[in-house]
Design a protein around this nucleic acid. Structure first.
Lengths: 149, 149
DNA sequence: ACCGTTGTAACCATTCTAGTTCTAACCTAT
DNA sequence: ATAGGTTAGAACTAGAATGGTTACAACGGT
């Protein structure tokens, strides 16, 4: 018997990386130049994708956009914006957790009764470890790293 | 204009938490009792889901299953199995990365040309931070934590 | 030979992603 | 005022992954 099933890892959406790309562009461009179409050209995607992401960044208070006239600008300095801020901004669903845990375990079973709570603790700790690492990198540092390549 | 779009976070599959549940059951049950149907009863899902996951755990060298006769047993001691081992086992696609990065950025743009490499470094660091935290928890410690609740 | 089990193919509904088209609203310059 | 470029976002699509189901073959002890 040979298995052919390939299961792939669920990955975090490119929304996040596109959002970082977008903010980097806004940071290094003169305000009025940085239109949705211009950003879309650099990211190489459809302008609506950029507008959707900019909408999230706006809700998170990271950018200001001028309807009509065009162009976006940062509401915080690049050294005040961390990758965690961006991560949170584009995953608008605030309190959702990275790890899903199956529900409705059988409470008549000693394992089923306890597993959810125990796992919750451990997986949350892993998520926090990741987020803390994201929080260590600012937009400014990321942009500076461009020059080192 | 009012936005009604709700975007949700892409989460890591419950395969992972079900796999941990499964291994915990195998660890605390007499070998022959622990059939796929029994595990499915504790997890409260379809037995095929469990068989699929056990197949992955088998490939990862974590469990041994007896076809025909039934029942599964651990191939390592619970203190030798970490959550990271399980995480890797069920996400069979080993080297895939947690974070996706958009591709095909415009190389004529100074940001587009550099963002991928710079982000890659940072996001990988965040992923490693998470995985190291998972590696700190063994199956044994998890099972022991049941009693503390 | 029977029966419960494992292994797995095949299929399905649901959800999310990333992209598209289209339209309305907005602002500035002419 | 109006034309042109822009933002805002609704509505739709194709594709992929998840979690579940049914069905059936292979296995092995009784």
């Amino acid at each position: 018997m040979v298995t052919t099933v390939v299961m792939t890892l669920k990955q975090i959406s490119t929304r996040f990386s596109i959002a970082v790309h977008t903010l980097s562009l806004i940071a290094v461009s003169p305000a009025n130049d940085c239109t949705g179409d211009y950003i879309a050209g650099s990211v190489n995607t459809n302008p609506v994708i950029i507008r959707r992401i900019i909408g999230m960044l706006k809700k998170a208070g990271l950018v200001d956009v001028r309807p009509g006239v065009g162009g976006a600008s940062l509401l915080k300095r690049p050294e005040e914006i961390t990758l965690l801020d961006v991560y949170r901004a584009v995953h608008a669903a605030e309190e959702k957790q990275l790890f899903r845990i199956h529900e409705d375990s059988n409470i008549d079973c000693p394992v089923g009764r306890n597993i959810e709570q125990s796992l919750q603790t451990e997986l949350l700790a892993a998520q926090v470890a990741m987020e803390q690492r994201l929080a260590q990198t600012t937009l400014e540092r990321l942009i500076q790293s461009f020059h080192d390549q």
